[in-house]
Computed example of a mutant assay.
Amino acid sequence: MQLGFIGFGEAAFEMSAGLKQQGEVDIVAYDPMWNDATFGPLIKERAEKAQVRLQKEPEAVLSQTDILIVAVPADKAYEVSGALKPFLKQNCIYIDVSASNPTVKQKINDNIRGNGVKFVDAAMMGPLPVYKHKVPILASGSGTDAFIELLSPYGMDISKVSDNPGDASAVKLIRSIYMKGIAALLLEMLEAAHHYHVDELVISSISETMNGKSFEDTMNRLVTGTSIHAVRRAAELAGSIDMLESSSIDSTMSKAAKDKLDLLSRFNLKEKFHGKTPSRWLDVIEALQ
């Protein structure tokens, strides 16, 4: 199999290294920084280690492969698609693994359309240094079925989301709202707990609350309960914010949570639900529409 990379940073390097260990794969790559005084040596070192043939022009990569993985920064992904379009081979599979948002992925799909080119919006859902080419990937777009058929035999873990470009990235970015948000919230909570010397008590109390149920059950309980108690819970957070600020501890996350609860309270969901906690989180979301 012949595979091409545009952009040879950490993602392309780790995937290439893993694929080379898996089987007979001929990999070529181009990175615009290949001859840069600062980053060039690292790119060349990685290419040699992963047994990847570096090219001096992107056209050289495109002329040699029907499977192209574009691994460039999100803010460059659309621009790069325009630069590559004139050189894409007929029936090429164009796989964009950037962290671009769904709208950008849709624009890239529209930009390269023609000549039988198939597009894949690929969202990598784990750390590349750990998983290498076996990193779980969510994929959507017209080329997804071919992507799975061609690369799954080499150990790649690809799950189809849909035929719509952007859907895979939507899952990843929406998931990040929670994963990145909860990390930031934990940092704020732990800083306060440590400042007041109640670390173990706070962690133990939260653990007792969270460990007894599944994530789905806890999520449902928190969302449905908050829908009718938003005013009271916002007021309690105001006290938390005052406590943090009096101790010169940053309260960014607590303020954001209070703002969200204040916004939620304007929907008068307690009245809409007649004071009774709804049974499903979906009832709350639909009530906000």
Rank of each mutant, 00 (worst) to 15 (best):
L151V: 08
A256E: 08
S205N: 13
I148C: 03
E236Y: 00
I228S: 03
G239F: 06
S204L: 10
D199H: 13
K107S: 07
G9Q: 01
N220A: 07
K132S: 10
R221Y: 15
Y154G: 02
G225T: 15
K134T: 13
D242T: 12
L185T: 15
A287M: 10
I206R: 13
L88K: 07
D199F: 14
Q51K: 08
G23Y: 13
A184N: 15
G7T: 02
I27P: 04
L201G: 09
L128D: 02
E236W: 05
A192G: 13
N111M: 04
S63K: 10
K105W: 04
R266T: 08
V104C: 02
I108R: 04
T103A: 13
Y131R: 10
L222D: 01
L186R: 03
G181S: 05
P41Q: 09
E245C: 05
E59Q: 08
M33E: 09
D36K: 05
A47L: 07
S205E: 14
A47I: 05
R280T: 12
A11D: 00
V72A: 04
T277C: 10
A168W: 04
S279F: 06
H195D: 02
G7E: 01
S176D: 03
V70L: 03
A12I: 00
L222V: 11
M243G: 02
S207H: 11
P127H: 11
P129L: 15
A193G: 15
P41W: 08
K107A: 03
S169N: 03
P73W: 12
V52E: 03
E208Y: 08
V117D: 07
